[in-house]
Write a protein that binds this DNA or RNA. Sequence first.
DNA 1: CATGAATGAGAATTCATTCAT
DNA 2: AATGAATGAATTCTCATTCAT
Lengths: 218, 218, 218, 218
Amino acid sequence: MKTSKQTKAQEKINKKKEKNYQKQVQIIEGALQVFGEKGFEATTISAICKKAKISDATLYEYFNSKEDVLFSIAEYYTGTEIQKLKEVNHYIHDTRERMRMLIQAHLEFYESNPLYSSVALLNLKGNRNFIKSKAYGVVRESTRVFVDTFSEGVEKGIFRDDLDKYLVRNMILGFIEHLVIQWLLIGRPDEISTYRDTIFEMVIRAIEKNNPSPRSLS
Amino acid sequence: MKTSKQTKAQEKINKKKEKNYQKQVQIIEGALQVFGEKGFEATTISAICKKAKISDATLYEYFNSKEDVLFSIAEYYTGTEIQKLKEVNHYIHDTRERMRMLIQAHLEFYESNPLYSSVALLNLKGNRNFIKSKAYGVVRESTRVFVDTFSEGVEKGIFRDDLDKYLVRNMILGFIEHLVIQWLLIGRPDEISTYRDTIFEMVIRAIEKNNPSPRSLS
Amino acid sequence: MKTSKQTKAQEKINKKKEKNYQKQVQIIEGALQVFGEKGFEATTISAICKKAKISDATLYEYFNSKEDVLFSIAEYYTGTEIQKLKEVNHYIHDTRERMRMLIQAHLEFYESNPLYSSVALLNLKGNRNFIKSKAYGVVRESTRVFVDTFSEGVEKGIFRDDLDKYLVRNMILGFIEHLVIQWLLIGRPDEISTYRDTIFEMVIRAIEKNNPSPRSLS
Amino acid sequence: MKTSKQTKAQEKINKKKEKNYQKQVQIIEGALQVFGEKGFEATTISAICKKAKISDATLYEYFNSKEDVLFSIAEYYTGTEIQKLKEVNHYIHDTRERMRMLIQAHLEFYESNPLYSSVALLNLKGNRNFIKSKAYGVVRESTRVFVDTFSEGVEKGIFRDDLDKYLVRNMILGFIEHLVIQWLLIGRPDEISTYRDTIFEMVIRAIEKNNPSPRSLS
DNA sequence: CATGAATGAGAATTCATTCAT
DNA sequence: AATGAATGAATTCTCATTCAT
């Protein structure tokens, strides 16, 4: 089963593009709901198709496999989200403000899309195949704003120039995502976006320049 | 048939404690290897038992289900790790140093136990049943050192008293775990413990007291 | 995992009716053969499917479980038999003759369908779940002719009015079925329908009216 | 599994006799309870042994298999019951009264031992292996009283001499057992021994001699 | 005698996926 | 384009039974 998947996957490249985009979205939305509630393994194709009001076989006209559907969810939602972010970003010129906005936007996006958060953080983050997928590229791309914004700050001299920019991204995303995961799993805190300013402020302290560490750091 | 299953489920609890502890560990170690390499779903009971050199049926003398084995891995390793931490912790009096040590210890533990890291961060973190399990309690307990250390710092006046201690823990763990996950999945960075000082330093800046944020924070 | 099973159970009901009736019968006939020869527990789904020339998975498109197949056999054959009985019954006006016919029909049905007899009397009679099933309703219904015929005789004044009609049914069915079971298990007597007249006559003596018991019955 | 059972069974002949009779009874009583409540297939050796307060392995010191235990229940209880019957029988000289007593005794035995009734009528009657067992011989033997009593009546000229004595036994046992099964499964009637006189009287009418059937019997 | 420990053997069921129509 | 029907392939878990101690 595992081996044959690989082989067949190649024969079926990009079935998607050719077909009705509308229906793809319909399926993705159905899948989001079921995956989000039950998790990937516990979800059946049948359940997705029932939500999407299509037959099981039809799903395979639009996607190559159950996992393809899962990954496509990320691609779709991230793509959509990136658009919004770019627009807002366009109007913000202050780097610090951009960073604040990014954190806020991420928190709010997760908070207002718990099903997607569940899929992304409980099912995708940790999926070894995901990182090989095209969808992962899109998701990764979407986090580049943090890297870029940090770099921008470094150039402007407001952020420390002795930090690995990817490590900074790690910190910010790790912080946010860990919080969201906890919120999803144990329901605490009630609202995560409440913390947006504190989080921003902690991040800023960690990365801002003229912010001498009181004692020398070994 | 259905009803008797329910009944038996109750009788089954605590099958473990009564039996040979040695063999439990043997199974846990076999399972760690297979789960760590293939992931929970892709792992079969047979594979675990082959590694542990026991029959499939025997596994069920010691554990109630595949998931029980998974959770027990966390319980076992965390329990062991907590012991070590407590010992070291005992000899460190400086709060800052304690925090440094904790971060270092966590990073090194993950780095030197990639299989366990894989199980814990790719399979357990995100498992909705895990948080209901006894094992989760142990894991959670093990992270309390961060909360306690932070509180200690607050009391001593070296850490900010305007931060939610759980949020602080979130930041630290999120940061570390996100880094480890990336390391596991895409192999970067090569060595995560290299970053121990930078990470510590970023964390410290975020939580240390006499560290006025240069501009006012809205 | 546990919860979703419950949910699915509800969705599953009535899988049958919607699908190809032809194939259902095909499966039922295959199952009859295997159940009839080996008994319920000793029969495997595989064996049934081999007889029915379908794959194991296909069986589950038409039935919900092995037990569902078993019960459906009874429903199917009883349903068919009831039809025949009703037709014949229609042309018989004499109550005594009707009773004779019923006994004869039952004996002959069992005798000419030993596989079904085996399933019905060795596997179903005594199955605690069966009485809760829909199929049981059909079977029960099919024995009502005995009750009705007896009542008819009572009304006409030819049968005793001091007997519980259900007890009468018990006697007749118990008599017949016990005989059939013996025939199935130890092969004696060779032919059960040989006894049709004797059985009828014994039954009649027990229930007929102007048939004073010689001595007083305490 | 099926084939090896046969082979091994021969090696293990009569393990029973040599051992502690006390413990055998203890096991049989435990088994009666579990078999009686759950049925043969749904009963596990473990459950029996828990009731009997011995270890699973010990059961096999006294019995050769799970089925052996089942059959032994019948042997034990029937043996005990036969004793009682013989005693009572000894003091009854009237054939008709003997028949009345037998019916009454059977009904009362079943009614006061529902667990045994369940085992005997739901699990044993219909078990194809049972008839090959030694236990079956004992059970069969116990029903000979009906045959003998009927023969006695025939000799004395009070019972019809045109009836197959085994058919008579069939009628009586079938009647009684069918009633008991119904009582076990659907709980009706509330008390079966209430019917003892009616049943006796119906039986008597069917078999008594100077009891001319009103019309000629074809 | 009693039993703790180990296991062989199986078997029902699930589901993603395919394909002819 | 859509789908009803069919199935291959797999896997957890159960349990009667054995045997060394």
